[in-house]
Design a protein around this nucleic acid. Structure first.
Lengths: 339, 339
DNA sequence: ATCACTAGCTTAAACCTTTAAGCTATTAAA
DNA sequence: TTTAATAGCTTAAAGGTTTAAGCTAGTGAT
């Protein structure tokens, strides 16, 4: 109702200049040589008048908004909402606030989010990028505002990024299936050229080759992001109705696994007798499947910590390292259970 | 690298005043009687120089940040991340951006989030409040910045709020269990005085009374937010190791259900033969339980739409309706499945 | 030739901070 | 007594916008 009190209000109330009040509020009374009793008077007035600084004005003056822009594919996806939560915690500790947006794997939405955040003068970006957004990222880099990619990355295009060892851990996952005596192993993955996903297929292939198992293209199932439910269903039905005697499957993400498992349940396939399963990432759902799933565990906390550290480093040393970007790789590990 | 172009830059480049540029950019060329060729020149310069408005400066001038502050218990909880996602979509459509924070059911964290958002001049709040935060909400109301509570509410304290018919739908849920021939029905709920939860217990009791079943305090299990896993475990073990022949259970939230189901699986209890179950809210996990759970379905989309509508209405008619707050109740419905 | 209008601009203040530079009165030193 | 230094304040500009008010030159009417 009644407007917020500003520096000016306090200054007028005490009959002094706003400069003086500002110095005291920012604890610069010594540099500015403010008198001891004046300091007291101002401190008291700040309390009495319930002064709260206007961060918008501060931002305008300083050019720092103390805001981080987060762009992910979909904040309602547990994987990303967990990342968001961890980013929020780390950012808060450092006095930053997070604004978020979901790109829905759509380059246009991604661009519009980035634009909005740029106009709002975010101090830095954390982005889990979508296909065909390399130029968007490059444009941000040109502005001098730091960007750190998280989870996803562009191998042919230099950026700061934090991610896991997708290829290696996928290889381990398939090794594990082979170790269980399986040799007709399928992979369900996304139809995408994004490296974090194709790396997983690479790891799958590497494991097969290492074990002298021939790679069968029919066992590499790709579902597109659009109409994902139907697509997974069809891919899975194809897989199990065909002549291939699939005895193992590797799901490239937890979302794919959740959808895939529903089909597996529907078909009455027995796990792990008829089919051994490893998935990427966790899900509450995995614990309720009658044979708790083996999965690749990413330490999201560490991933986020590295991302924030890198971002803050960039924010605090602007201009530096324009031509040297850092890639941080966090080790994921395989958790084996009954499946 | 190179600084963003400002209004001033464009004005200098064309040798005109910033006022003129501002009028054209905001499509007020008619009111301001700007010459037709000048309009063209400015429009072209805006494109050539890639002008992007500084929203921080705009905010300072207008007092409107076009930002909504969202406070929930935990953004990584699927229930809230879905709400966040829906709010994001609605807000984006209207040109608003969302900043979010998690209170962890902690009144102090809630206060600090609210303070940060106030200092950042958010235009409105959407809050799913935690216990003992009535005064915080009241303080926000006093500032004149609109607040809409979502999901949770304070029955004795007037606010704008959007929620579901907790009591009635809980009664229906228990009616359903009774209809299945159960008469030793337990409820697992949180140890809290928040009305959205206690309403569910009320509904449970109402159903029992209606069916002339005596309410047994031993069947009302309350777990505290802190150390929730252990607490649920203990409560459940008590329930099933005691003399009560529990044959039905109503979970007051999906988080409680997920934890509770794990215990039920561990104990080897057969669903629905030995135990019939209804839970509040959905979860991927429910689909994987061998007997797909019956649950109370909230239409979050509608909930969020109502919340945003109400909030925007308040933002656009400031001062109005200071003493008349609105409560919107969205109907939730029972989805019955095998459990 | 004078006046009234109006089209087409500019000026300047305001939003709230921060901070370098400047001012004044007092004190200390010479 | 004069000069220099210092403590303790104020002034004013800057950051990027918006917008009411003011200014100027040209047009048309008288």
């Amino acid at each position: 109702m009644n407007k917020k009190t500003s520096l000016k209000d306090i200054a007028q109330h005490l009959g002094v200049s706003t400069a003086l009040v500002s110095y005291v509020i920012n604890n610069k009374e010594k540099e500015a040589r403010v008198g001891a009793d004046m300091v007291k008077k101002i401190r008291q007035a700040v309390i009495d008048m319930n002064y709260q600084p206007n961060l918008v004005a501060k931002s305008l003056k300083s050019g720092q908004s103390k805001t981080i822009g987060l762009v992910v594919a979909d904040i309602s996806n547990p994987f990303f909402s967990m990342i968001a939560r961890l980013i929020e915690d780390e950012a808060m500790k450092l006095g930053y606030v997070v604004i978020f947006g979901s790109s829905d794997e759509n380059a246009e939405k991604s661009q519009s989010l980035i634009n909005v955040y740029l106009n709002r003068q975010v101090d830095g970006f954390i982005i889990s990028p979508t296909e065909h957004t390399e130029e968007q990222i490059r444009a941000v880099q040109k502005t001098g505002i730091p960007v750190v990619l998280i989870d996803r990355y562009f191998p042919d295009f230099p950026t700061d990024s934090v991610r896991i060892n997708n290829k290696e851990v996928s290889e381990q996952a398939v090794d594990h299936l082979i170790g269980k005596g399986r040799n007709n192993i399928a992979i369900l993955t996304y139809k995408t050229k994004m490296a974090h996903i194709t790396d997983r297929t690479e790891g799958y292939k590497m494991s097969l080759k290492k074990h002298k198992i021939k790679v069968n293209k029919k066992l590499i199932c790709e579902a597109s992001y659009q109409d994902i439910e139907k697509d997974v269903r069809n891919q899975m039905l194809n897989l199990f109705n065909g002549e291939q005697q699939v005895d193992g499957i590797f799901f490239a993400t937890n979302s794919l696994a959740v959808l895939g498992l529903k089909v597996i349940i529907g078909l009455g396939i027995k796990v792990p007798e008829d089919l051994a399963i490893v998935s990427f990432d966790q899900s509450d759902a995995f614990d309720f499947f009658y044979a708790p799933l083996s999965y690749v565990s990413q330490c999201l906390q560490q991933l986020v910590k590295e991302a924030i550290n890198l971002l803050i480093k960039r924010i605090q040393q602007p201009g530096k390292s324009r031509n040297s970007y850092e890639s941080v790789i966090v080790e994921a590990k395989l958790v084996t259970r009954e499946s």
